[in-house]
Simulated scan of single mutants.
Amino acid sequence: MMNHKLTGIMAGLLLTAGSLTAQTPADSIMLNDPTRYVTRATLYGVGAANMYDTYLSPQEYRGIEFRLSRESMRMTRWADGNLSRQSFFQGYVNYTHNHVDNNNTLSALLNWNYGLHYHFRLTDHFRLLAGGLADLNGGFVYNLHNGNNPASARAYVNLDASVMAIWDLRIKRYPITLRYQANLPVMGVMFSPHYGQSYYEIFSLGHADGVVRFTSLHNQPSLRQMLTADLPVGRMKMRLAYVWDAQQSSINNLRTHAYSHVFMVGFVKEFYLLPNKKKQTL
Score class of each variant (00 low, 15 high):
78 W>I: 00
110 L>H: 04
140 F>A: 14
280 Q>Y: 10
84 S>C: 01
244 W>R: 13
192 S>G: 06
122 L>A: 08
129 L>S: 07
66 F>V: 12
93 V>D: 05
7 T>D: 04
102 N>D: 15
4 H>V: 04
1 M>I: 08
47 G>W: 11
249 S>R: 07
109 L>V: 13
67 R>T: 02
248 Q>F: 15
129 L>W: 02
170 R>F: 09
66 F>Y: 12
181 Q>V: 08
108 A>D: 05
42 T>V: 11
177 T>G: 02
87 S>N: 10
246 A>G: 09
250 S>D: 15
90 Q>R: 12
215 T>L: 06
105 T>C: 07
139 G>H: 12
218 H>Y: 15
210 G>M: 07
237 K>I: 01
278 K>V: 12
149 N>I: 02
20 L>T: 06
268 V>R: 00
139 G>Y: 12
200 Y>R: 14
123 T>W: 07
207 H>A: 03
28 S>L: 15
101 D>I: 09
156 Y>L: 13
127 R>C: 04
238 M>F: 09
106 L>M: 09
25 P>V: 13
223 L>P: 03
78 W>M: 02
145 H>P: 00
65 E>M: 10
152 S>Q: 13
210 G>W: 03
1 M>S: 14
139 G>C: 12
125 H>G: 05
111 N>H: 14
75 M>Q: 08
271 F>Q: 01
125 H>A: 09
130 A>H: 01
87 S>T: 06
187 M>K: 02
146 N>A: 14
5 K>M: 05
208 A>T: 05
16 T>W: 04
281 T>Y: 08
20 L>D: 06
273 L>F: 00
275 P>T: 00
251 I>N: 07
77 R>W: 01
176 I>F: 13
148 N>F: 07
42 T>W: 03
45 G>N: 01
166 I>N: 03
264 M>L: 12
241 A>V: 03
238 M>Q: 05
142 Y>W: 14
198 S>F: 04
262 V>E: 04
214 F>C: 07
79 A>Y: 03
166 I>R: 09
209 D>G: 11
63 G>Y: 11
245 D>C: 07
252 N>D: 08
215 T>Q: 07
156 Y>N: 13
255 R>S: 13
261 H>A: 13
63 G>L: 12
281 T>I: 14
72 S>F: 02
193 P>F: 04
247 Q>G: 05
20 L>A: 14
226 M>I: 09
185 P>H: 05
168 D>F: 08
110 L>Y: 05
226 M>P: 00
23 Q>E: 09
221 P>I: 05
33 D>L: 09
21 T>F: 14
259 Y>L: 15
245 D>K: 06
